[in-house]
Amino acid sequence: MKILVCISKTPDTTSKIAFKEGNTKFEENGVQWIINPYDEWYALVRAIELKEKDASAVLHLITVGGADCDPIIRKSLALGGDEAIRVNAESSDSFYIASQIAEVAKQGGYDLIFTGKETIDYNGSSIGGMVAELLNMPYVSLATKFELAGTTATIDREIEGGEEVCEVTLPVVVSCQKGVAEQRIPNMRGIMAARTKPLKVVEPAAVEALTNIVSFELPAPKAGVKLVAADNVAELVRLLHEEAKAI
């Protein structure tokens, strides 16, 4: 079995978000970079667990980005995986990124492709679906549980107001979220091993980006909180009803 996990580099969740060059570019100064939490905690860890159960399984990681992604890929390899592929290109367009992943995946013949349910920077939730479409593979999104028996995957996925259980025969693309696995901390052995694992850099396929970010904006600051005394809850209800018209 061959598994591919898609990894993205994102700013740490505590990062203060700012922009530069007339609000057209993300201000990277002072930003701590991390593996996108959904990719790391759920997609990657579940793939590692599958490999731990099946010694013959091969686990590859892929990212689309510049050389500044290498520390993130090494950190991912420290958790697990046999080798990593970095497509040497940068884009904010999901079709462009998905096309690069699909190109690599076509050659790799993967049975299982995992992504996180979204990245915490562009929040597109779109790479998994696009990769599946480009590869003509089924897609199960927002998975909260993933079990594998032979070539049949049983997956719990989020629906409005609950979950449903579905079955699909490999190959399949799955986007993962909380519930699929538990976060792991890389150990020293993993970190040492990651230094010598192969990290292949491939040049991008010729694909046209279909979207581009024209500019960024920060939310308007709040006017300030109106405090109501704890013994005057009725006043809060009045404000919510008459002023905010929220109830």
């Binding site: 349910k117 597109g124 939730s125 779109s126 679906g129 696009m130 479409e133 279909l210 979207t211």
Partner: peptide, 21 residues
Amino acid sequence: QTGKAVAPRVAAGLKAGLASG
């Protein structure tokens, strides 16, 4: 949940740019 699963597929299938959310 449905839109997140289908919109990217449709966009990729039609080679259409997607603005999500």
